[in-house]
């Protein structure tokens, strides 16, 4: 798989380590309680189809990316800097 890094162009997925569902960006508020954190840490949507997920460019520029990928075909549909995604979400909430 080749990941279209927004800054570096197409990079081999082997340069990255995989964390999982991009929903992990949305860590609950510390006051949200145990149930919210339990859901956050342990439960996943695990869809068959389009999946937004976190990849870390460990053997590259060490940036976190949000990669959109189809889990049925392994087709990669896009990649963004996770930082941009997190900032956009924060602005969306504000």
């Amino acid at each position: 798989m080749l990941i279209p890094h927004p800054l570096l162009g197409l990079r081999d997925a082997q340069e990255f380590t995989y964390l999982g569902d991009a929903a992990l960006i949305d860590r609950p508020d510390p006051a949200a309680g145990e149930d919210a954190f339990c859901d956050y840490v342990f439960l996943r949507d695990n869809p068959a189809g389009v999946h937004r997920e976190l990849w870390y460019h460990e053997q590259g520029d060490r940036s976190w990316l949000v990669v959109t990928r189809n889990t049925l075909t392994h087709e990669i549909l896009g990649a963004e800097l996770a930082r941009d995604v997190a900032l956009a979400r924060r602005e969306g909430r504000a």
């Binding site: 999982g20 569902d21 859901d39 342990f42 439960l43 996943r44 949507d45 695990n46 869809p47 068959a48 889990t71």
Partner: peptide, 18 residues
């Protein structure tokens, strides 16, 4: 491997990744 898909039909999220 399809456990999450099937259980989603019952409205449940699982502590599982495929």
């Amino acid at each position: 491997g399809s456990s999450s898909r099937v259980m989603a039909l019952a409205g449940l999220r699982l502590p599982i990744e495929s």
